[in-house]
Simulated scan of single mutants.
Amino acid sequence: MTDSRNASPATSPMTRLAHGGRVEGSPFVNPPVVHASTVLFESVAQMKGKSATPARYTYGRRGTPTSETLEALITELEGAEGTVLTPSGASACVVALMAVLKTGDHVLMIDGVYGPTRAACDGILKRFGIETTYFDPHVGAGVVDLVRPNTRAVFLESPASLTFEMPDVAAITRALDGLGAARPIVLIDNTWATPLFYRPLDHGVDVSIMAATKYVVGHSDALIGTIAAGPRAWAKIKSTHGDLGMFTGPDDMYLALRGARTMAVRLAHHQESALTIARWLETRPEVSRVLHPALPSHPDHAIWKRDFEGASGLFSIVLKPCSEEAVAAFLDGLALFGLGYSWGGYESLAIPAFPSAIRTAVPWVAEGPVVRLQIGLEATEDLIADLAAGLDRLAARG
């Protein structure tokens, strides 16, 4: 059972992270890691739910003290009705969609959404008879013009994957509220900001999803997803999650809970370093644009400034026209930036990005190649020196 002494809503997120999700009555600071499948009952009556002392746990997949602590912490941070855990961020997106959709339904999906989410819509959901329409990230209140009689969900991501447009979530949810009982469920992938920098449920969203693999875990050593839901969607999320047999290993849960304790401190460093490097990149002659919402140069900076409490360490750059060989020379020679997928860990990463592959509603047109950067916890001056040498190599190759 989680501790009833959880921080009050007035307490800062940093304090919530340090004190939330404790086990009630336990003298230990860190909750125990419970490895369990079978749960023993006191009697047949208790197994049937007819005992005067109902069983708190029934089976490992249906919850343990370890899962409850992490769920309670995320629920508190998100301001949600409840939270479930999944084995990855991608599975969290798919489970959430399956919870609110059925055969014959229609979902509106932001163009530029995370690639695996798009793949799920174009693959498994399509096979189940669910149709997807992708829309311009800047649609705003115009989203209501895209709603059909069978539209049951609107899926957002803020900022958009790879290209970092900022949808006006508040305008979208306000417009959908005007539909009354026909209002679709609104879901959002909030991995980039986490609830420390943006709380979607406070802006009219029903379901907030994170790849907790990223900033919650923070150490590139565990895969886990979270789905936090408000009252309009919680029952469906909880039921579908259980029916699909979704569960996360206790060791991964523990790593996520441990990572969460320092998430606020890490995010502050990610943010500061990323902004410093993003501003420096704007001065480089090889860079055409820096796609970072917290920069005043970003087209959607006003939305970020209005709604967000901060920015994380992930952004993209658009290079000036150059050859594939030049981009490879830039990236292959980096000493501190690893070439790898994922992000949110302590290490810096870089990948060549291809936004046109995940854009259909609004084709992606750019003057040059796109590179996505994850700024880790290394010294900022060392990362800048590494990037400078890389851009010099790019310029030499042309």
Rank of each mutant, 00 (worst) to 15 (best):
H270I: 07
D243Y: 05
V169C: 07
S348N: 08
R5L: 06
K305I: 02
F308T: 12
P87L: 05
L281Q: 02
S88K: 08
A328L: 10
D206I: 02
V365W: 08
T75Q: 10
V95L: 11
A90I: 10
V216E: 02
V147C: 14
P116N: 12
R152T: 11
V113N: 06
P167T: 07
V290Y: 01
P369V: 15
A36C: 08
V23Q: 01
T262G: 13
P195K: 05
E286C: 13
P231S: 09
P184F: 14
A357N: 04
D105N: 15
A170Q: 13
V29E: 03
I224R: 00
G142Y: 08
I224C: 04
A99D: 02
K238L: 11
A233Q: 02
P87G: 09
T283S: 11
P299K: 06
G398L: 04
H241W: 15
R289L: 13
A99R: 03
R174V: 12
L97H: 05
G21H: 00
L349Q: 12
S161C: 10
P355I: 10
T117S: 12
L267P: 06
K48H: 12
R284I: 05
W364S: 13
A260V: 05
G230Y: 07
A229K: 06
D332P: 07
T38M: 13
D168H: 13
T75S: 15
L391A: 06
P352C: 02
A119W: 02
T83I: 04
F41M: 10
A119T: 08
E157H: 11
D168L: 12
R289V: 12
T53L: 09
E68H: 11
A228L: 04
A96E: 01
M1E: 06
E165D: 13
A278I: 09
T240P: 00
R289Y: 12
A182V: 03
G63S: 04
